[in-house]
C-alpha cells in the first residue's frame, strides 16, 4: 500500500459518502444517474467476488464490503425508497448503459490476464468502471442546474482514479515492471472521460 493508492481509496470512499449524504439529507436524487449507479454496483460485484475466497488484508476486505453495500444502498434508494425514487428524472437518464456492459464483456473475453472466470470478471469490471460514468456525464451536460453535492460527487470520483494512476507509476518504479496494462489503459480512459467535466467544474 502506498500513499497514492490510499489517497485514491479515500477519495473514492469520500465520493460515495458525498452521494449518500446528498440522497439522505435532501431525500432527493435529482441530477444523479441511476444507470451509472447500477453500473458501479455491477463493477463492484464483478471485481470483489474474491471477497470470500482470497483474504488480502482487513483494509481490503472492509473496503470491498463498504463499496458493495454502499452502491447497492444507493441503487435501492433510487429504485425503492418512496420519497427518493420520485425525484429520479427517468426521461433525462437515457444513456443505453446495456451497450456499455456488453462492450466491456466482449473486451474482457478478448483482453484479459488469463482466460479464467475470475480474470475475465476482473477485466470486465475494470473496463466497465472506465465507462460507467458516461450516463452521469450525459445527464450533467443536459444543462440541468447541477446541485453542488452532485458536482462534488463526480469530481471526487474522477480524482480517485487519477491517484491510482500515480499509484501505478509508483509501483512500476518500486516493485518491478509487472504488466498492469489493463489497469493502466482503462485508468487513463476513465480519467480522460472526466477531462471536460473537470474543465467546466473549475471554470464554474
Amino acid at each position: 500500500m502506498n500513499a497514492f493508492r490510499f489517497l485514491g481509496d479515500m477519495t473514492h470512499l469520500f465520493s460515495v459518502l458525498v452521494l449518500l449524504l446528498k440522497i439522505y439529507a435532501t431525500k432527493s436524487c435529482s441530477g444523479v444517474s441511476r444507470k451509472t449507479q447500477e453500473l458501479y454496483m455491477v463493477v463492484f460485484l464483478a471485481r470483489y467476488m474474491d471477497l470470500f475466497t482470497d483474504y488480502i488484508s482487513l483494509y481490503n476486505s472492509v473496503m470491498k464490503v463498504v463499496f458493495i453495500t454502499s452502491s447497492a444502498a444507493i441503487v435501492w434508494c433510487m429504485r425503492r425508497h418512496p420519497q427518493v425514487r420520485r425525484t429520479y428524472d427517468k426521461e433525462q437518464d437515457t444513456f443505453r448503459h446495456v451497450v456499455l456492459v456488453a462492450a466491456a464483456f466482449v473486451l474482457a473475453l478478448i483482453f484479459n490476464e488469463r482466460f479464467t472466470f475470475r480474470e475475465i470478471c476482473w477485466a470486465f469490471s475494470i473496463y466497465l468502471e472506465a465507462v460507467a460514468i458516461l450516463p452521469q456525464l450525459v445527464l450533467l451536460q443536459r444543462g440541468r442546474n447541477v446541485d453542488n453535492l452532485t458536482g462534488q460527487y463526480v469530481f471526487f470520483l474522477g480524482a480517485y482514479r487519477a491517484f491510482y494512476i500515480l499509484n501505478w507509476i509508483y509501483r512500476y518504479f518500486t516493485e518491478g515492471h509487472h504488466s498492469r496494462w489493463i489497469s493502466w489503459l482503462s485508468g487513463l480512459v476513465q480519467t480522460g472521460l472526466y477531462a471536460d467535466f473537470f474543465y467546466y467544474y473549475f471554470l464554474r
Binding site: 493508492r5 481509496d9 473514492h12 471485481r47 474474491d50 482470497d54 488480502i56 481490503n60 473496503m63 470491498k64 463499496f67 490476464e113 488469463r114 479464467t116 475470475r118 480474470e119 476482473w122 491510482y164 499509484n167 489497469s183
Partner: peptide
Amino acid sequence: RSDAVEHDEL
C-alpha cells in the same frame, strides 16, 4: 494462490 496475477488493489 496459483494465479500469476494478484489483484491486491480495490
